[in-house]
Design a binder for these strands. Structure first.
Lengths: 231, 231
DNA sequence: GATAGTCATATGGTATACCATAAATTCCAG
DNA sequence: CTGGAATTTATGGTATACCATATGACTATC
């Protein structure tokens, strides 16, 4: 009755409620920059655009508020969360700790099937580096790290890191498109991969920390220049 | 025209929307154990109990879902989030990193007014230790750590720690009421306080890690015994 | 003409009623 | 006793109405 190829690979798998769809759409819209930070998220226009009721929109906004992607101004309503260097600095610091621990744990504890898997997601990452699509690079980077966190068994830390990444997505885009540096992260990524595969936890952790220190430094220049045009 | 003393210090300060109140109530109800893990949270009864509309309840549940206190079963609805040792282990591990970093930063960077403040919240904590009210102990502990995180400027990490604490609140109660150990945490707390006030970052971090390793060990015995009655 | 007061509009917040679906339970027939 | 159908229950989803507040425009008075 259905398509002949899809026998029963996945019928539904995810009940995918309307809320989930809207959540996903709005989250990616914010992360990918279709809404600017500080921009108001007016309910009724969103209802029209997405074709859903206010209830769904409001529940979604609550969820994204808890995620830190949206903030509520008293008597004004929700806006896309803003970000200053003070917050970004903290986020990079936390990522440093969590990602460092994850790669270290992964380096010493990965199973026999893992190297092939990591090489795969690394190759995919490398492939995205050629085309200038930052969105593809970000997704491939996410998958690469997801493999590491999953193998390390750090699922909760991965959850936290993903949310933090959502909050600094704008900065990540800026650091990726820093053209003066020819694909800076790639050498760090290679170092991370090699250290993990060779079981060198300390080196892996060091590579992650170097990578994030770099990214934080770039992000700082951007944030400082754009948010302090007066000083 | 108004009260003569209050010229204009603060009129409202917190608009305190209904959602905020309900959120707070349900969060503390879950954290303080008035709802058991796995217990269903049926919307309409909650509406009656709290005297609010479904909208508020639903938005609150979305928020708590994002916080990890509530999970949604497909086609069943929300339940109080469950917890196994695998998750708890990760949470204690993350807390170890974040709290360790916070006390270390606080030790080396606290201002001149901070020692008095910390002594105050520590004294309050000590006072709660006498009466067996675990809820008071938990609140005092929270305030003690809040002072530290705030002074260290780690507000985002504090946010994360608080949410993680919410998810393991049941375990924290169990470790607190472990009667065989006569107030075990207090010596660690004293060590943390002294190390911070003397500016010894390494010692402070070590004390935190010892404390959390202890707590995790106790939690593990509880979780293993109650969740593996068959093995 | 400027200031102050009033009014209208837009938005957020809340409440309620309604429908569809899925799951569990109950009940009936074989 | 067993299998299946019908009912109940709860949720997801939607629409709508109402109120409070904030903002901006408009008007009236000095």
């Amino acid at each position: 009755m259905n398509s002949p190829k899809a026998v029963l690979p996945k019928i539904d798998q995810a009940p995918m409620t309307l809320r989930d769809i809207v959540q996903d759409r709005m989250r990616t819209a914010i992360i990918e920059g279709h809404f600017a930070p500080g921009e108001r998220l007016v309910e009724r226009p969103l209802c029209d655009q997405l074709g859903v009721s206010r209830t769904v929109i409001r529940e979604t906004i609550r969820y994204l508020e808890a995620e830190g992607l949206v903030e509520i101004l008293p008597n004004r309503g929700p806006i896309v969360a803003r970000m200053d260097w003070g917050q970004a600095r903290q986020i990079y610091q936390i990522r440093r700790q969590l990602e460092g621990a994850a790669v270290a744990a992964c380096a010493v504890a990965h199973g026999p099937a893992f190297p092939a898997k990591l090489m795969g997601s690394f190759a995919a990452l490398q492939a995205t580096m050629d085309d200038a699509e930052w969105i593809g690079v970000m997704r491939a980077t996410t998958r690469f790290y997801e493999d590491i966190f999953t193998e390390a068994g750090h699922s909760i830390a991965w959850d936290i890191v993903q949310r933090l990444n959502g909050r600094i997505s704008r900065l990540r885009v800026l650091t990726l498109s820093a053209k003066d540096r020819p694909r800076p992260g790639m050498s760090h990524m290679t170092a991370i991969r090699d250290a993990i595969l060779s079981g060198d936890a300390a080196a892996a952790q060091q590579a992650v920390e170097d990578h994030l220190d770099d990214a934080a430094a770039i992000a700082k220049t951007f944030l400082s220049s754009e948010e302090k045009p007066d000083a």
